[in-house]
């Protein structure tokens, strides 16, 4: 298969980038999107050019490193996959592919398709700790968790922090990410002691990082490679509302 690629190239953070056009030739349909970029990079390097920078690690959809917009869709056209799990057979021979980095002011472009997602780490950090007894390991199942709650916590915990929700959101909001991280603890008994403080602090940090706000488009849910539901955003909203009405103490505001 042959493709024409238009790839965003940008040397350094803050510098002016632009699209460059490349030809990807003899691509096997079984190659992943990242394999295809590797192929293009090999040729670029051979010709003395600068390879296209993109993030990748596990290449099996669980690390959350990779991610880019392909023809305006986060992680490309397939549902429930990251770009490393996207196979070239999803496209037609001769397709033109526009490849852009995630666009959000809270995710500054570092180089080409690599963006700085430290804002996500700071949101998680702002969630603080959970109170658990340390020391000897507790007995298995000593703390009962109802099955539906365990399932919901697990579904939220499936978030790999890839940033597709922010990339796809017309408001560049990170509410799905924030809600997933807050949600996986709020469904578990271990997450209860700091539940409301955590909700407030994480939303506060979300706003501080310069993300937009949720207008219930649902684009994040569609883009999420892990299929995380916008219902978690509901739950986070509910926790913030409850926390504020109950007057939960909070140091930084």
């Amino acid at each position: 298969m042959d493709f024409t690629l238009h790839v965003w190239r940008q040397g350094t953070p803050g510098s002016k980038g632009d699209f460059e056009t490349y030809q990807a030739k003899n691509v096997a349909p079984s190659m992943s999107f990242l394999d295809m970029l590797d192929l293009v990079n090999e040729e670029l390097t051979r010709d003395g050019g600068d390879p296209i920078a993109f993030e990748h690690d596990c290449r099996e959809g669980i690390c959350g490193s990779c991610g880019m917009m392909v023809n305006g869709m986060a992680h490309g056209p397939e549902d429930l996959v990251t770009v490393c799990q996207l196979h070239m057979r999803s496209f037609s021979d001769g397709d033109e592919l526009w490849i852009e980095p995630w666009r959000a002011d809270a995710f500054p472009v570092m180089r080409d398709l690599v963006v700085d997602r430290n804002a996500f780490d700071r949101i998680i950090e702002s969630g603080g700790y959970i109170s658990v007894r340390t020391g000897s390991a507790p007995d298995a199942n000593a703390v009962p968790v109802p099955k539906p709650d365990a399932d919901k916590a697990f579904d939220a915990a499936a978030c790999i922090g890839c940033g597709a929700c922010v990339a796809a959101c017309p408001n560049a909001s990170a509410m799905l990410f924030t809600a997933a991280k807050a949600g996986h603890l709020s469904y578990l008994p271990q997450g209860q002691p700091e539940r409301y403080e955590r909700a407030i602090q994480m939303v506060h940090q979300h706003d501080e990082e310069g993300f937009g706000n949720c207008t219930n488009h649902g684009a994040c849910q569609e883009a999420c490679p892990k299929g995380i539901s916008v219902d978690y955003i509901s739950r986070l909203n509910r926790d913030v509302l409850r926390a504020r009405l109950a007057g939960v103490a909070f140091d930084s505001t």
Binding site: M69, N71, G72, W98, E100, R103, D105, A172, G210
Partner: peptide
């Protein structure tokens, strides 16, 4: 809220596919 969201993405996508948004939400 509009102002917050507008400043959250000052560099827009060249290509964007908005097939999932409803007409009402847009």
């Amino acid at each position: 809220l509009w102002r917050q969201s507008r400043s959250a993405r000052t560099h827009r996508y060249l290509k964007s596919r908005s097939q999932v948004f409803s007409y009402a939400s847009r």
